[in-house]
């Protein structure tokens, strides 16, 4: 479903003190694949390259080399068809606050090529699943982070994507909202979608992910089910893997 082969990505940043440009390797020779009906956990500390990887899959960033394919379509060659296959939730919990959730979902449905009425119907169904239907016609200006995140999730799933990419979906959410999100991820898996979740919260990964890839310094260290990963590194939790990677 989603296949990354030898993907590399670097950024040029300016050192404000020395005025020199530096090259930062954000992602190095990254290869992994996610199958339909699978939740893949992309783990790593802040700045490890998780968001960059996910942004490349969605087409918000372009890899310097390597290829990314979604349902056998190359994201570089066919960016728009690829984006129509993916539902993306970014780390920023931000929505168009002047709109109500119903209006937002309707217009985003149209962006994804849906009939406005179909978009609205699907959107309302998603809001119901996310326990936000009562707020469908209230402007999002006063919404909490959790409510905004739920609307963003509905927006990402509106066009019935075959691949779902959630970048740190539970960060900043209370336990109830986080549980709603995790339950939804399980439903998405059961519906046969390929799901990639990036996070640095290990309990969540151990609970829902079928396989995990630990990314550290832009490189992938291991790509296996959580239990196998623990066994391979001879540790009791995935957090210990992090520490082992940080202090080799």
């Amino acid at each position: 479903m989603i296949q990354l082969s030898d993907v590399n990505k670097a950024f040029r940043v300016k050192d404000r003190k020395t005025r020199a440009w530096k090259r930062i390797e954000a992602v190095k020779s990254l290869s992994f694949q996610v199958r339909a009906g699978e939740i893949y956990g992309l783990l790593g500390p802040n700045g490890a390259g998780k968001s960059t990887t996910l942004r490349m899959i969605v087409g918000l960033m372009k890899p310097d080399s390597g290829s990314i394919r979604i349902c056998d379509l190359d994201t570089q060659e066919k960016p728009e068809p690829c984006r129509s296959l993916v539902g993306y939730l970014s780390t920023d919990i931000s929505v168009y606050t002047r709109f109500t959730p119903r209006e937002l979902l309707r217009i985003f449905g149209e962006f994804q090529g849906l009939d406005p009425r179909v978009a609205e119907r699907r959107g309302m169904g998603l809001l119901e699943k996310l326990q936000l239907k009562d707020f469908a016609d209230i402007r999002m200006e006063g919404f909490s982070s959790g409510q905004k995140q739920k609307v963003s999730i509905a927006r990402a799933l509106l066009h019935d994507p075959v691949a779902v990419i959630f970048d740190e979906p539970t960060t900043g959410l209370d336990v109830f909202t986080a549980k709603t999100v995790l339950d939804l991820l399980r439903i998405l898996k059961s519906e046969g979608r390929a799901v990639i979740v990036s996070t640095h919260l290990m309990p969540m990964v151990e609970e829902i992910c079928d396989r995990v890839g630990i990314i550290f310094g832009g490189e992938l260290h291991g790509d296996a089910p959580p239990a196998e990963m623990l066994e391979r590194w001879k540790v009791h939790s995935l957090e210990e893997v992090f520490f082992k990677l940080a202090v080799p």
Partner: peptide
């Protein structure tokens, strides 16, 4: 600045 551009660019619109 509001962080909504990414969601717009992630749609299938060219």
């Amino acid at each position: 600045e509001r962080g909504t551009l990414q969601s717009l660019l992630a749609t299938s619109l060219p």
